[in-house]
Write a protein that binds this DNA or RNA. Structure first.
Lengths: 117, 117
DNA sequence: TGGCAATATCCCCATGTGGTGATATTCCTA
DNA sequence: TAGGAATATCACCACATGGGGATATTGCCA
């Protein structure tokens, strides 16, 4: 079980940590919250209004993202301002979006080819 | 509901697709299978032995990853060879690993600072 | 201090899903 | 063609989790 010997083989614990990070991003509501935060710091109220979910759910999902280190929270009086804490989030979402776009493009091309043939 | 006017705002459907892609990577067993496949094409038998899960579960998880476009399958007689179909997987995992490593490093630094103070 | 607004937490439910054992399917070979 | 090995599928269970309503907590202001 000593993991460090091989060059890039991760232990089960490390795989679990990576999985939890991915799981934090594996929900449309949380992605919508993150997308809103791409434009800058926002309060819980503004976020739950923009995303269209309940205040309770927005607070819960934001807390989950903050617990995973994806977001950071700042208190200012009654307001709680959330912001993106992990700069890699941008690159992650871009990578996935590009991959999905290419996949859809390929699917279209294949359909066109089949129809044309 | 039509929100496509802004430049980089994704629709709910698009967010769902991105979420499903992330969800495919949000499991330690599936990540272990992918990690094994980083070294090249493998059969289901070799993968379930290397990862340490049951044959049924390995087959199910591999099928799920293939359905999401992450993996591709090739039949050769009785054997089913799986391989990584989406090249962005490497970059995705590297990004997350680097981010987690930096986070742990920062946590250590903070502990050291608190102890030293 | 009383009241209101913003946020977090608690309880509950419905659904999704990882895992397993048993079974079906498919293909090779003797 | 019969048997066996590799893979996929099915039925099922246990559990995690997204979501909502109600409520608690906190801080501001009149």
């Amino acid at each position: 079980m000593s993991k460090g010997s091989k060059k890039s083989t991760l232990s089960l614990a490390a795989l679990g940590a990576v999985a939890r990070r991915f799981r934090a991003l594996a929900d449309p509501t949380r992605l919508a919250l993150i997308q809103e935060l791409m434009q800058g710091e926002r309060t819980v109220g503004a976020l739950h209004a923009a995303v269209g979910t309940s205040q309770a759910n927005a607070s819960k999902q934001l807390a989950a993202l903050a617990a995973e280190g994806v977001l950071a929270r700042r208190r200012e009086g009654v307001y709680a301002y959330y912001r993106i804490a992990d700069p890699s989030i941008h690159a992650l979402c871009e990578l996935v979006c590009d991959s999905l776009a290419r996949r859809h493009q390929d699917a279209w091309a294949q359909v066109a080819q089949e129809v044309g043939a």
